[in-house]
Design a binder for these strands. Structure first.
Lengths: 219, 219
DNA sequence: ATATTTTTTTAGACTTGTCTAAATTTTTAT
DNA sequence: ATAAAAATTTAGACAAGTCTAAAAAAATAT
């Protein structure tokens, strides 16, 4: 099945919102990002759902299906590769390329985008540091590691989470652990492998090994 | 004023048809090129006319205005530059690039296309030998010269005409002189500078200096 | 010169994606 | 627990660009 330009934009935006919010994405959030009225978004979500690209329950927000995510990843891949092209080859500044890439991301040719990828030397991140999915939709390993694998006194930055469950993320919120937080491992308890960490600007907290396993950091 | 994708395609196609047919372009000709029904074309020509991009009289065919031609030339410039990019940088074959260029030609950014032009070394022709307009919409000098400036016994090929008037072109038709014709100058009469030329596969003919001036050839 | 054929236009319908206004559901605050 | 507020959906309208069917104009052939 083919995707219209509007559909591609919706899928891409739902994907982007999902990157930082692992829960269902609200109609209003999409509305704000797409700069279209919530009423129009509502309508489109229903259509995307009928096509099997999102799971959508009225009033309950939206989430990409595997197939929807595959499409979204291909758009994101194109967007980010074109951004690299614009900065590295066309000599644009990193802050001038977004709008043009928004257009280029809809060019339909797998062969072109794979040749472009090769031409650019298979970059792993775009000019803003965002990861570029490979041709199979796999995001590159950016060297993030589980907090559970870090040694005491390590300083690191919270870059992501390894699971998206609501209970897990609500726990992180309660612990005041958010993306980008600067952490220092103060102590690892050998008894249950629980960790005592300091969070820059916040109070130090205890977290279980189970939680630490699901926190991704960059040292 | 901005142009929609559909409008750009119509203007481009009218331009292309005008390249080989200097008279008004018929609704049917456009219909065939755009792969849309004549009824839809009729409607669009009326709209393009209202916007001042074409001169259009019902039942009388269509012709680009200066402003319409300017838009068309910018699309053609983009199309042909992207084709060069696809062949020279992306290593596509010359027969694989048309469809992709049809998409890329609608990317809106003068800065991008001018940077691309520079990146490619300001090419004068696309991979099919078609001339690429510069940023001011001027077509490059491909070394075509007036038949009136050629010496006796010169062999050359008819590449274009310097004027599009109906009477002139009807005369050329009558003389069996068409684009691509291979000519040999047999004799130039000093009295009135009229020329006797042989046309490959046709009968030799006499043409006046006035006519010869308006015929463009490549030696 | 007129009848026939071809070309072109008009009229009305349809699709996509948007909007506004009103109705409904969910969330928040008392 | 209920009222008020916020978020979301439904209903109906609109613009762009297309289509089919029918009408009108132009070109062609007798």
């Amino acid at each position: 099945m083919t995707t219209s330009l509007a559909e591609e934009n919706y899928l891409k935006i739902i994907y982007r919102l999902s990157e930082t919010n692992p829960n269902e994405i609200s109609t209003n959030a999409v509305s704000e990002m797409t700069q279209t009225k919530a009423a129009s978004v509502s309508d489109m979500l229903r259509k995307l759902s009928e096509k099997g690209w999102v799971n959508y329950q009225k009033y309950q927000g939206v989430r990409l299906t595997d197939e929807g995510q595959k499409i979204a990843l291909s758009i994101v891949r194109k967007h980010r590769l074109w951004e690299v092209f614009l900065v590295e080859k066309m000599r644009f500044n990193w802050d001038e390329v977004h709008e043009i890439a928004e257009q280029l991301e809809h060019i339909e040719s797998d062969e072109l985008i794979n040749k472009l990828d090769a031409f650019l030397g298979f970059p792993k991140v775009d000019p803003h540091g965002d990861p570029i999915p490979n041709k199979d939709g796999i995001l590159p390993d950016l060297g993030y590691q589980s907090l559970a694998d870090c040694k005491p006194n390590t300083q690191c930055k919270l870059m992501g989470v390894a699971q998206d469950s609501t209970v897990f993320l609500q726990l992180l919120t309660k612990l005041e652990l958010s993306l980008g937080a600067k952490l220092t491992i103060l102590e690892i308890n050998s008894f249950d492998r629980s960790i005592y960490i300091s969070i820059e600007g916040k109070n130090p907290v205890f977290i279980s090994h189970e939680v630490a396993k699901n926190i991704l950091v960059k040292i």
